Amino acid sequence: MSVIPMIFTSGWASGVNAYAVVLLLGLFGRFGGADSVPPALERTDVLVAAGLLFLCEAVADKIPLVDTAWDAVHTVIRPVAGATVGALLAGHAHGSLGAIAAGAVGGGSALVSHLTKASLRMAVNTSPEPFSNIVVSLLEDLTVAGVVTLAVFHPVAAASIAGVLMLLGLLLVLFAVSRIRRFVRRRRERRAQRAGTAHPAAL
């Protein structure tokens, strides 16, 4: 039943960067001899599309506010990608897990990690400098690459790491929510001050 940890891990990683997951799994399957990878992910058209979209995400994900808009667009795409990869992995494992159940596991873990990522990125965007976005994005890319690579060869260990990262992410979100609220409150106060200053001048 090593397919279950693989499905969970690929789902979690898809919530962070779905295109990287498809690209890495496809490359490992096609050139790395990974028997656990479904042939559908090894196709040339899939690899090319995933590679191009990964490059787009690599750029958009490092620009403040653009990353938030990108995350908003991918609120549906990432969970669907996680569910699809999960169903493919289950089918490739000769029915060891039903496609519907696999899709639920992959899509559910992708949704949780996506919402976590999006919330943390909103908190990062409260910082006035752009470098934190670049650092966080690079860390996300490296983490996804490392966890997916580990999942291909040691799925149980990778699933354990993904579970810990998911829990840590949720805890960080609790902290991020308070930071976002303070940021929004400060912006409202500044707008109120500017409006109060401009009003007497207009009179």
Rank of each mutant, 00 (worst) to 15 (best):
T44S: 12
G33D: 10
P200T: 01
L138G: 05
A99L: 13
L47I: 15
P155K: 06
A158L: 09
V22I: 15
A49H: 03
A145E: 03
A176P: 06
L203V: 09
A99E: 13
L24K: 12
L52F: 15
L174H: 12
L171Q: 08
T84I: 05
S178F: 07
H154K: 12
M6T: 14
F183C: 08
I100C: 01
P128N: 03
L23F: 15
L203S: 08
P200A: 10
A72F: 15
G51S: 08
A102I: 00
E129V: 15
F183S: 12
A50Q: 05
V22M: 09
G26D: 10
S160N: 07
F175T: 13
G146E: 08
S119T: 15
A50M: 01
R30Y: 00
N125E: 05
A34R: 02
R30C: 07
L139F: 11
A40H: 06
T116S: 07
A40I: 04
M6H: 01
R181W: 09
T9V: 11
L97F: 08
A198W: 11
N133E: 04
A87K: 05
D45I: 07
A69C: 05
V152A: 12
L97K: 11
A87W: 01
I161F: 05
C56Y: 15
M166E: 01
G26C: 09
V177C: 04
P5T: 10
P79I: 01
G32A: 11
L23Y: 07
F183L: 02
L65R: 13
F8Y: 14
R190D: 12
G146N: 04
I4C: 11
Y19C: 00
R190H: 12
M6W: 11
A20L: 14
L172E: 13
V37I: 15
P5M: 07
D61I: 09
I4H: 02
G29Y: 01
V105D: 03
P155T: 06
G108D: 03
T149I: 01
S137R: 08
L168C: 14
